[in-house]
Amino acid sequence: MIHATPGRRELFAALALLAAFAIWTGLVQCVDVRPVGQNGTNVGFSTFNVWFHELTGVHMKIYAVTDWLGLVPIAVCLCFGALGTVQLARRKSLLRVDADLLLLGAYYILVVFGYLVFEMVPINYRPVPIDGMMEASYPSSTTLLVLSVMPTLKYQVDRRVKSPALRGTAAVFVAVFSALMVLGRLVAGVHWATDIVGAALLAAGLFMAYRSAVAFADRRRAKPDTEG
């Protein structure tokens, strides 16, 4: 029996989730596709998506609130960026900055890159115009941002904070905030339901890839100590 070491487990999970995202993206483009979107644009899983959209309706106040709350994960990114900058200033070398922070910066860049790709190559458009404009809708950018960044807050707190109370508080905050944001995006009616699913799969896959990279970096750092 092959034992999956730390790093490999997360890598396998990341590959599975990213494969699921790729399959889901393909299905969105070929299953029950009908011109039910803005200006007759095509939407996959159209029967389900239209049913769900009519069920929830459109709530622009919820959309506005979730848009503003999207600043929270951005603030998280800035805080970790500041922590990395402080380490760089004190240690005088980029190579001496904690590996998990360097990988976190690369991870955030990868998330932004994923968002830009789907902005340039729209899979579908939002059910409703935003400020009179048609906007790409798949995957939901706010959902992708929240579910990519907020788990890193819990992960970093678990790695850096010894206090069980603080770690528990971070876990509850991340879980509640993320759930409310995803629910808010779902009921706001500014995305098709399948856009939310796609964002969740992509975010989960990217986050597990980050965890895998950190686990491998930790093992590499610990190896000289073990050998010594």
Rank of each mutant, 00 (worst) to 15 (best):
M1P: 01
E54V: 00
T47D: 15
K92V: 00
L102A: 01
F216H: 11
G70P: 11
I2C: 00
R211A: 12
A193C: 09
L11K: 02
L88A: 11
A20K: 05
D158L: 00
A165G: 05
G228K: 13
Y155W: 12
F173W: 08
S141Y: 07
F113Q: 01
A16P: 03
S163V: 08
A215R: 11
Q87N: 03
F118R: 08
R221M: 02
A213D: 03
V65T: 13
S148D: 03
T169N: 01
N49T: 09
G114F: 13
G228V: 08
A14R: 05
R160P: 01
F48K: 02
V28E: 14
G81R: 04
R219F: 00
L186R: 02
T142G: 12
Q87W: 07
A22L: 15
G205K: 03
G168E: 07
L144I: 07
F48P: 01
L206F: 10
L183K: 01
V112A: 15
N39W: 08
V111T: 12
P127M: 08
I109Q: 06
Y210G: 02
V172D: 00
G7V: 02
H191C: 05
F21C: 04
S212V: 03
G114E: 12
S163C: 07
P139W: 07
A215Y: 02
F45Q: 09
G44N: 13
L83C: 03
V117H: 09
V97N: 02
V31R: 13
P127S: 11
F216N: 02
G205S: 09
I2V: 11
I123D: 05
G57Q: 08
V31A: 13
V36T: 15
H59Q: 07
L103Q: 04
F113V: 14
V128W: 01
L144C: 05
L180G: 00
S93Y: 01
D67Y: 09
